[in-house]
Design a binder for these strands. Structure first.
Lengths: 335, 335
DNA sequence: TTGTACGCGTTATCAC
DNA sequence: GTGATAACGCGTACAA
């Protein structure tokens, strides 16, 4: 059996409350007794039981994190940040992986709540009614990553996806591209896919290029879907001079599909990615992409979360972090 | 305030104990009362408080997981598996990231213990005395991944790294390679690096090739270190016909270093990886590598953990999962 | 400054 | 079959 506060009290010849005061520094205790208690704690190796503490304090020092897929460079890096910052503030994280399934997410929201987590950091693009129900019914602090949720009165940390996609499209246009296909995330209820399309559309129209539905391909955050979309372009004889993909991974998949069909990047087709993950130090040609402060996104989200837990008013409901266009070797100027 | 068992009892006009019996199905309760209780639970949305439950049961339904870096394809995939299987059995996981620092690992071992986790899945290669101390002093169920720890009487799930590296080396030798450099993990206290060297050495000697110290380069599980090692080979004019890297990522980095110096893969140098992560669907040329059942490693480890938690005797202290050599485009036969 | 006693939400032991 | 009641380990009014 582990040593409890009771044992410490007995050994130090003081009351339980005094021990509690010493370890929490909650009320003044005479130096002598303090020393005595510390000595016993030292000797016995006493560690307060966080479960009992949680029960009475109604605080668990736990933050729930819901993500769609751990095995992604982007999410892994975000998790690195969340975990690191949370630990700094004495919080631990409970990890929930959903494979992007909305009902799974809702289940985890409820499960985490029942586990008494003090807040939930939520990484998803799609929001369904059950999500909204949960948010409405529970005043649990929530921070969304990569998804503006200010309409739900939920804090979020993200970059401006619409603007970023606009810049990406604009860059291609300014480099002579006229036929540009977009592989976006086409899942229903997904604002990310909508943002991308709007950014793309805005740039096209701004430069007097026609927006065509058939240039929009719907993928699903999986490399395979981008490969298939690209194969479809080829099969449909709808090959553009530039392809904008939803993620770096999907840009890579698109590139590989092109290559497997005998096309060269960027000689035949320019391809751009998104997120600028570590993938870019791996794949050749290096991808032109939108660089995002991935670690910072996780770090800022966690700091906002901790502020909310502590009841401090957070100034903004949405924090937009800066992004930048990084031009590398997967794109070229055409005439 | 959340509704408690007390509220349910009152509303259903029964005692607390009866409610407890109903929700846990621990003792017979008359059908009628059961129905009444269920009805109240339904109406109030009552959910048992796991914290209170943990306190009395001394069980937290929590499994701690310690990993060196979340943002790695290998670890991400292992985590996917751990999370999925754990959830299946009603366990949640608390994630701890160490960046491979041993003292950080020890700190987390203690922290997790104090958090009342029921077991710890531990992914590391290096073991120092403080680790052993912890294992000796605590009878908490531990499962090690990727690291034989049977000497510490700790269960582990891994592949046979020595054999795998032997096979990799043998494959190169059989394809005419005589000068083969190994970029291994050279951190102190790391058995993985030792296994690799032994496997490499065994193959070399078996085929009558001299084992030379200067063919061993010490990296550290980071792509950058493999890049540097390779650059060093070039600078030292110690360029082999084949390079064996510690991980796929490091193989890619080595390849990129070679390319940046004007060498082609596999024309000038054959490069092989290890782990066969998703990287291999990305990088070109596709890497020859050792394929491992990554997801299964995590899944099996979690199942073993749950068995240990439940006190079921696990037959083996070490579970070796199969690996296989996958030949792709980064290696070639030479004369 | 210190100690007593209660409560947090459950489960489990005992009576009935 | 059902209901009090004592734990579980801790924080905290309240009293001293």
């Amino acid at each position: 059996m582990a040593v409890t506060i009771k044992d410490v009290a007995k050994l130090a010849n003081v009351s339980i409350s005094t021990v509690s005061r010493v370890i929490n520094d909650s009320k003044p205790v005479s130096e002598e007794i303090k020393r005595r208690v510390y000595k016993v704690i030292e000797e016995t190796g006493y560690v307060p039981n966080p479960v009992a503490r949680s029960l009475v304090m109604k605080k668990s020092q736990l933050i729930g994190v819901i993500v769609p897929n751990i095995a992604s460079f982007y999410i892994g890096e975000v998790l690195n940040a969340i975990e690191e910052i949370a630990k700094t503030y004495g919080y631990d994280i409970i990890l929930c992986n959903t494979y992007g399934e909305a009902d799974q997410e809702v289940r985890y929201l409820n499960l985490l709540k029942s586990k008494q987590v003090e807040g939930i950091i939520f990484l998803t693009h799609r929001l369904i009614d059950e999500h909204r129900d949960f948010f409405a019914k529970n005043k649990l602090p929530i921070v969304m990553i990569n998804r503006d949720a200010s309409d739900l009165n939920i804090s979020s940390v993200t970059v401006n996806h619409k603007l970023a996609t606009y810049e990406l499209t604009k860059y291609l246009i300014e480099n002579g591209h006229k036929k540009i296909n977009l592989i976006r995330n086409g899942e229903s209820n997904d604002v990310f896919g909508v943002d991308q399309m709007e950014g793309y559309k805005k740039a096209m129209e701004e430069f007097g290029l026609e927006f065509k539905e058939e240039c929009i391909y719907n993928g699903r955050f999986k490399m395979g879907t981008a490969y298939d979309c690209t194969q479809q372009m080829i099969d449909e004889d709808n090959i553009p001079t530039g392809i904008i993909a939803t993620t770096d991974g999907m840009a890579v998949a698109a590139s590989n599909a092109l290559r497997d069909n005998g096309y060269s990047i960027p000689e035949d087709v320019s391809v751009v990615g998104y997120y600028d993950t570590k993938l870019n130090s791996i794949y050749r040609p290096k991808l032109t992409s939108i660089k995002q402060p991935i670690y910072d996104i996780g770090a800022v989200a966690t700091r906002v979360m901790i502020k909310k837990i502590k009841g401090e008013e957070t100034s903004d409901n949405i924090i937009i972090l800066p992004h930048s266009l990084v031009v590398r070797d997967s794109t070229r100027k055409i005439d």
